[in-house]
Design a protein around this nucleic acid. Structure first.
Lengths: 138, 138
DNA sequence: AAGCGATTGCAACAAAGTTGCAAATTATTT
DNA sequence: AAATAATTTGCAACTTTGTTGCAATCGCTT
């Protein structure tokens, strides 16, 4: 059976509230990543700006969503797929941002290649962001 | 002989002004990347906030500096090394952010590995940001 | 040294993000 | 099921970050 938004919240020891359910649902229905402003618009006059900030922060802390670095300074959030949702955070996948439609994809099945760092550098996390044209726009 | 800040500006068809010289000098003296706020602090009450914004934008346009995407939403700027300063922009190098001292390094000699994208995706730009512990903090 | 174009600083504004606190909602206990 | 405890929400006020128009200033050319 498919996990409901409420189940995911419960699994992460979060109390089940309207805003959390709605925002989590937004992510589940969206193909790509969402910016804070997207959420503000899509959930229209529903929730306070502050609530959205706090909810996103909570989700990031719990490993339900992760942030995606972008070169233009906007913070993007995306649902962690599969195993991630259970609390085990492994967001070592490639992100793709389409220059045309602006959609951000999590390419879960593209593994990040090894990077040979100079001596003395210790790798903890690695983000790969590719931009270009996506499959719908090419 | 070593190029002076003024020479670099001239080579890029920019008029030589105090703010441009100082800000460029800041980058040349800094080991790592700088955030807008760093520049505001380091060049203290010297320049207007707006001037710094505009100067950074100009430098990015000219290919003198480049931006580095970070997951925490801060924009970082770093000097393009070697060939880059001449106008030919090739920032396909790996960036490393130290979790401890917060310094951001441009690992110019670490080449970005190939990424195998799914069918239909066209790659135009690729950013690799690694975080962890740098050689000074390990 | 004068004149023209580019650059700067100011002011005013817009957007993005944060904090404290009282009211409301959710979870827990009895 | 009601009462209580613990979280969460929304509001207000504020800080930080980034943008725009315009007059004053500065740098470059002749």
């Amino acid at each position: 059976m498919v996990a409901q938004a409420a189940d995911i919240l419960k699994a992460n020891n979060l109390s089940i509230t309207d805003s959390r359910k709605s925002i989590l649902e937004l992510f589940r229905q969206s193909k790509g990543a969402l910016a804070h402003s997207d959420i503000e618009k899509k959930s229209a006059a529903n929730f306070d700006r502050v609530t959205i900030y706090r909810t996103l922060q909570t989700f990031v802390d719990k490993g339900i969503i992760h942030t995606i670095p972008t070169s233009d300074n906007s913070v993007l959030y995306a649902l962690c797929k599969d195993e991630c949702t259970q609390g085990h955070h492994h967001d070592n996948h490639v992100h793709f941002i389409c220059d045309n439609c602006e959609t951000t994809y999590c390419l879960d099945h593209v593994t990040i290649p090894q990077v040979q760092l100079p001596e003395g550098f210790l790798e903890k996390q690695k983000d790969v962001v590719v931009s270009g044209t996506c499959k719908n726009c090419s």
